[in-house]
């Protein structure tokens, strides 16, 4: 049994190589252990004092690098994230409660691998890569490569997710994340959808990506290539909803039936595309989209 408080990434990698498991805010690990889902690992290395993991900055060569230890509370307000990766701010604003957001991190959300994670669909539509480091070296995986099933990733036990790296965004781009929820706080997505769009000069869709949460063993992408070159209208939004529902392979559980999830994820996908297109066109829609378009707003 050991508990190591790391101050540098190298401290963490050394501890992982010796068999320790990482703990950031503990909002999944400690809660899971207390619920009896999985015992607390015998050897832990704490990441919350590693300053190198808690920065947001430009990626050399273009794009944004978000340290894996950045908390949800920071992501909600960070000007770079809100400006160029708005869907991540939308998602972070919905995670847990203020207490969860102050200790929970982007890297923790990603590496916990829940198919219902809020930040996952935004990262996928923004073409993010997860940077994994170990004493053996550094590699980058796409989100599709990273998530292999519910609660599992392609990372080796000695690898630490150090950053999520986003490519540079074109002009006239926007993204959004919308989820179905039964309450405003301490909620897990019933279903969720993210969209990222780039508009051409003539206002048609030059790039579109849609990804879904809580309807498959992992976050899943929807094939929306048929929408490229079209102007966004009701027909396109209806086609997006249909494609999302067709992509979903949800389960029945105590929060929703599979049929309800399959239908509502289409509605969320449609709303996400609509909000992303409006943002791409310069319309300011506040973070999170859920509150701005009236989901869960106090009457």
């Amino acid at each position: 049994m050991s508990f190591t408080i790391a101050n540098t990434i190298d401290d963490v990698l050394t501890a992982l190589a010796a068999g320790a498991r990482p703990i950031a805010g503990g909002t999944d690990l400690v809660v899971g252990a207390r619920q009896g889902k999985a015992p607390l690992p015998a050897d832990l290395v704490a990441l919350d004092r590693v300053d190198e993991l808690r920065t947001i900055g430009p990626e050399p060569g273009g794009g944004i690098r978000i340290g894996a230890g950045v908390t949800h509370a920071t992501l909600v307000h960070d000007a770079t994230v809100v400006g160029a990766a708005t869907s991540i701010a939308d998602a972070s604003a919905l995670v847990g409660s203020p207490a969860t957001r102050h200790v929970g991190t982007l890297g923790g959300n990603v590496m916990n691998g829940s198919p219902a994670m809020d930040t996952g669909a935004p990262l996928m539509v923004l073409d993010a890569a997860a940077e994994l480091r170990s004493l053996r070296g550094t590699r980058r995986l796409t989100m599709t490569e990273l998530w292999t099933g519910p609660g599992s990733t392609a990372a080796e036990p000695d690898e630490l997710c150090t950053a999520l790296v986003l490519p540079a965004e074109s002009d006239r781009s926007g993204s959004a994340y919308v989820r179905l929820e039964y309450r405003r706080a301490m909620e897990i997505a019933v279903v969720g959808a993210a969209a990222a769009v780039t508009l051409a000069d003539d206002g048609t869709i030059a790039r579109l990506a849609v990804a879904l949460a809580a309807v498959a063993p992992t976050i899943v992408a929807v094939d929306v290539s048929a929408m490229i070159g079209h102007r966004v209208d009701d027909n396109v939004l209806a086609a997006v909803a249909l494609a999302a529902s067709d992509t979903a392979t949800p389960i029945d559980d105590l929060r929703a039936s599979a049929d309800y999830r399959r239908h509502t994820v289409g509605v969320m996908a449609r709303r996400a595309v609509d909000a992303a297109v409006r943002r791409a066109g310069g319309e300011p829609i506040g973070v999170p989209v859920n509150r701005s378009i009236g989901i869960g707003v106090a009457s």
Partner: peptide, 16 residues
Amino acid sequence: GQPVNSCSYLAVQAQG
């Protein structure tokens, strides 16, 4: 200064 659910936070992690 930040709110934390102490039921789900390890005591050992709060040192310092």
